[in-house]
Write a protein that binds this DNA or RNA. Structure first.
Lengths: 343, 343
DNA sequence: TATGTATGTGTGCACGCTCACACATGTCTG
DNA sequence: CAGACATGTGTGAGCGTGCACACATACATA
């Protein structure tokens, strides 16, 4: 009696054999139908379609993956603490767009967050163990072990941002110099004379590039004494740096912060010092994060086309999956500027 | 010559047979070693360990999954636009904690974002196709088709928040009434007399529960005329609602906003009206989002133990995987209050 | 008529693993 | 000393697919 449906044993899965039985067609033909390989008659097609519906068939991913040696999964690896992960506005946009592009090609995005040594080995195992067919790497560090692993495995990959060292992995980046020049020019254009920059971590390429753009834009107004590097990209660092700038030059009337969080920190320091923005001091940032929209006054900043970047990285991976050799290539995408009230 | 290593054909994978050959032990023993099934001698264990290292063996997930009928994947399904996904501070915390718990049990979290009809069918396919062994559902709507699918499939699942209708899926939630009572009491305790609430969407259970807590806390000071519902949980809605409150009662001196975004919107409206916070009006929120920390002044708010919730949901899924029947059960986790400067 | 080509179909095997079972050995009991 | 039991090991079958190949059939061509 109780044998009809064993209590614990799960129900037998519906397989391609069931569809074969129900449709009167062989497994091979059904497989061709499922994979659009052609050579399926209209009558067979219809019979299979009905049978699939009738028996409630869904192809088994594991079996398919075992046979084809493909998983239809792409890893989206974020090298960042979880905390940053859900605060960074750029990541979400890249994720969204990459997911859209991959979905259309019938791939699934698997998000892996790399924040400790332990997760590194787990993720390495994932990449090696055939969990995924390719990888999109975001916020890769200099000398990143992850990048080394990906290159050793030779799996199709793409990364956001220009790599610090030598790397064969194709990448997508914005033109930091040009973007920084564009936004800094606004400060000059509105008549600011004593213009400072909060540079960000000096070891980061993006920071140095933004400084180059700034230098080029402010021209004769440039004063090396008003360029302050910070230990990180955080709000606190912006606050501290702005205080230091005010100490060095109380008459400062313009600030370019290398990212929005720093800019907001700077604005807090200005408020503390009794300076008005943009009345006394014009402030511009970089990223167009949520903070830029919500700050008071709204922060003028550089908007990076993160969706575009995400989509391009996904496309790069797909192209490699099709056999294209994209090693040592890259793409640069244009930025735009969002004018709000802070400058 | 060129046959030694075919150009396009990928290298043959290292399998358990290679480990068997290198170690002089049979497949069966290796499998037992890999799965900690016991009955492996110390000498065999050592030989296998060395061989694995030597040949660089990594178990193939697909094959394992095919044989065991388990994927070691758990879906984290977010029913929310991508945009909300990376703005909502609560999601990230749940994600982090769930990921940690599952990792420890050697499960992998797969994040699925449900934002269109199309993704719904893709996700349903995922759940049905044996991609995952279980699911954690976040921000489930009333009458959510996703919830129906999960229940039909009968796969181990857990969800955040009390379900609107009947559901057998176990859930974890905070005590909204108690939390709202706690934070509202502060307004009364600091001598506020004309206390308003911006309620949030009336159709949402959480909003109604928070209103109940508020009502209980303010007691005799309660004025139904100062309770304003909003169409959504957004910043703009908070701004509009606060303007309306100021119109109805210019002497308002306390506001409980049903979430932080609303609270920040309300503070913007107060600033516009020339009111100081907390001098003229005390403001409290709910969520302890990033906005609460960064607002000026810092927002006093309710901190939901999102990590705790995420961890508990993960544990619920794991327990079901082990055979426990958790249907129709739930857990309530306690909140805490973060006092900052806004009240 | 013999041959070629395009289309359509079915079968055996491989993918890499786990699990059940058969079997071997050693130790402890009565 | 026979039996029971725990420990350790190897082998065959099966998980559900895709793919190569053998094999049909229909029609066009020489």
């Amino acid at each position: 009696m109780s044998n009809e449906q064993p209590e614990t044993g799960r129900a037998r899965r519906v397989t391609i054999f069931d569809v074969a039985a129900a449709s009167g067609v062989s497994r091979g033909t059904i497989s061709r139908y499922l994979n659009d390989s052609g050579y399926v008659s209209e009558s067979a097609r219809q019979a299979i379609k009905d049978a699939v519906e009738e028996v409630g068939y869904v192809p088994n991913t594991a079996a398919r993956s075992l046979a084809t040696r493909q998983t239809k999964n792409i890893a989206f690896v974020v090298h960042e603490s979880h905390n940053m992960f859900y605060n960074d506005p750029n990541l979400g946009g890249m994720l969204t767009a990459a997911n859209r592009v991959l979905s259309e090609a019938d791939f699934q995005l698997v998000i892996l967050i790399l924040d400790t040594e332990q997760t590194l080995s787990r993720i390495a195992g994932h990449l090696r163990g055939g969990y995924v067919d390719g990888a999109i790497l975001v916020s890769v560090r200099a000398e990143d072990p992850l990048l080394r692993i990906v290159q050793e495995l030779g799996i199709p990959a793409a990364m956001a941002g220009r790599p610090a060292g030598a790397s064969s992995v194709p990448w997508v980046d914005v033109d930091n110099v040009e973007a920084a020049r564009g936004i800094s020019a606004r400060l000059v254009g509105t008549g600011r004379k004593r213009i400072a920059m909060i540079e960000g971590p000096e070891t980061m390429r993006a920071a140095r590039e933004r400084l180059a753009g700034f230098t080029s834009a402010v021209g004769a107004h440039f004063d090396a004494n008003l360029v302050i590097p910070t230990p990180d990209w955080g709000h606190e660092s912006g606050f501290d740096a702005m205080r230091e700038i005010l100490r060095r030059e109380p008459a400062v009337d313009g600030v370019f912060a290398a990212c929005d969080a720093i800019a907001i920190g700077a604005m807090d320091a200005l408020r503390e010092a009794g300076k008005s923005v943009p009345g006394d001091v014009g402030v511009v940032g970089f990223d167009d994060s949520l903070w830029a929209k919500r700050s008071f006054p709204g922060l003028s900043t550089v908007r990076q086309p993160v969706e575009e970047m995400g989509a391009r990285m996904a496309a790069m991976v797909l192209r490699q999956l099709k056999g294209e050799d994209l090693r040592h290539t890259h793409e640069i995408v244009p930025t735009s500027i969002v004018w709000r009230d802070s400058a």
